[in-house]
Structures are given as C-alpha cells and as structure tokens.
Computed example of a mutant assay.
Amino acid sequence: MFRVLFFDSGLGGTSVFSAVKELNPNCSYYYLFDNECFPYGNKDEAFIIKRTDEILEESVRRFSVSLIIVACNTASTVALPKLRDRIKIPIVGVVPAIKPAAIKSKSKIIGLVATPGTIRRAYTNDLIEKFAKDCKVLKIGTTDLVRLCERKMAGKPVTLTEVAEVFGPWLMLKPEERPDSIVLGCTHFPLVKDEIGTLFPDAVLVDSGEAIGRRVRSLISLNQAPSYEEISDGNHAFYTGNLENLSGYENAFKSLGFKDLTAFSLK
C-alpha cells in the first residue's frame, strides 16, 4: 500500500490533505502534527531544520511511508533541501502561491498573509521578485491567525472580529488600495477562508492545496500507485505533545476520515 505522510506543526496541513486525498483517494494517509513545538512560525531556522529532520526520519522508519508532504510553509521554506539530502523518498513542500496570485490580480496589488518567519525569509522574497515583480505586495506576518485556526479545528468558536484584528492594516486602506488577490501563505489559513472572504469579498483567495494534490498524483504515478481495487489500510493521525482538548481534535480528524489519534514520541 502506498502510504503518504503529512507533517505540520499543527492542523493547517489538513487543508492540503483534503485536496490531496480528493485527487489520490486510494492511498493510506498518516498525519503527524508537532503540537509540542507549535507554532513553527516564531522558531529559528536551525531549530526547525533539526526538529523536522528528527521527526521525519523516525516517521519513515516507523510507518514505512512512501512519500512525505511537509504541509507547513515555514518548514518548507527552511528545511526542504536538508530533508531531501537525508531522506531518500519523495518529499513535497508547500510554498506561498505568489505566482498564481500575481496572475489572478487585476489591480496588481496582492496580499501575502503568512507566519513572520515565512514573510521575512529570502525564499519568499525570491518568489516575489521572480513572479510578482510588477505587483505591489502587501504583507502581514502573524501567528495569531494560526492560533485562531487551531482553535477552530478543535471545535472552539472563532469570531469574525478576531480574524479582522489580524487584517487591520489592510482593512484601514481605501477599497482601491486593498489587495484583489490574497495569498494564504500558511496551510492553516484556508481553515478560516470563509471569514477572510467575508472581510475581503472582492479578493481572490489563493492557496497551494490543489497544486500539491496534482504534484502528489504525478509522483505516485512514477512510484507505482495502488490500483483502484486495492484497499487502503486506513488513515491515522498522531501528535507529539499533550492536547488540552483531545476530544475536540479527535472529532476533527474523525470528520476527515481518520481512524484514530495517537501520541507520537521520539524517545
């Protein structure tokens, strides 16, 4: 059975999971989130590289996975080269969708909302220089929105007012000065896509989910995809630390088709 591992610091990768599973329904999926060190967006690069390498090497050994999706923009923009050097199975990363956002923008004013680490990283600035040179790019770096997304996935209420506070700098602009294409530069942020769409009804919201799904499909095809008659051994989720509201997280994963939610330890 072809096993795909999703890795993130939290539940943001579930937004990518849905798109990948829709295009690749016959795989078994494992989802591992490093809530013990959540969020990654305010951690230094050396820590992120070491942490992701340790967890993913152990995951490959323990679960015999065939492909890894680093479903975290922060980890992807920092650790992918090192991970690919050390782990000899296909690894797919998630990076801000600057190119499609620039293509979709009519006003040539695009917005990028991401974690502070992703916003300041040279990799992100290189994407902007390469694909959005003709655009004005407004940026918001936030871990508050990440936490709101986690809260929502755990079954706790999130208000539009709370989301609006994150986007205050853009909402204060005149309508014609606001972005008409917004990059959701963290896999968490599609989880509050409806709220962001309410705040910016005239903007196109762009994320990487569908593109990652297509990329995974091509890699699975190259690596002997399961036949449509082959039965999956189920989807399994794991967490690294302690969860304050375990039942809330269990319900979230159950709704996505996961059989269980189990603690994962490196020790």
Rank of each mutant, 00 (worst) to 15 (best):
R3S: 14
G12P: 09
G13Y: 09
S18F: 00
S18N: 13
A19W: 00
A19S: 14
S28Q: 12
L32G: 04
C37S: 04
F38C: 01
Y40Q: 06
N42L: 06
A46V: 12
A46C: 02
F47G: 05
D53C: 08
D53W: 00
I55E: 14
L56C: 02
E58K: 09
R62W: 04
S64V: 03
I69M: 07
I69V: 15
V70Q: 13
A71L: 09
T74W: 09
A75L: 06
T77C: 15
P81G: 12
K82G: 12
R86G: 03
V92L: 05
V92F: 02
G93W: 04
G93R: 04
V95C: 01
V95E: 15
P96A: 06
P96N: 05
I98E: 02
I98G: 12
P100Q: 08
A101W: 00
A102N: 13
A102D: 00
I103L: 05
I103N: 10
K104R: 15
K106A: 06
I110G: 02
L112T: 11
I119W: 01
R121E: 02
Y123R: 04
T124G: 05
L127E: 03
I128E: 10
A132M: 07
V137W: 10
L138F: 13
L138Q: 04
G141N: 08
L145I: 14
V146Q: 03
R147C: 14
K152F: 14
A154P: 01
P157A: 10
V158C: 10
T159I: 02
L171P: 11
L171Y: 05
L171N: 07
K174A: 14
P179S: 13
D180R: 01
S181M: 03
V183M: 07
V183H: 12
L184E: 12
L184P: 07
P190S: 11
K193H: 08
K193E: 15
E195D: 01
F200G: 15
V204P: 00
D207P: 04
G209H: 01
E210H: 12
A211K: 12
V216E: 00
Q224K: 11
E229G: 13
D233S: 13
A237M: 08
Y239R: 07
T240S: 10
T240I: 04
L243F: 03
L246N: 07
S247T: 15
Y249V: 14
E250H: 07
N251F: 04
L261E: 02
K267N: 15
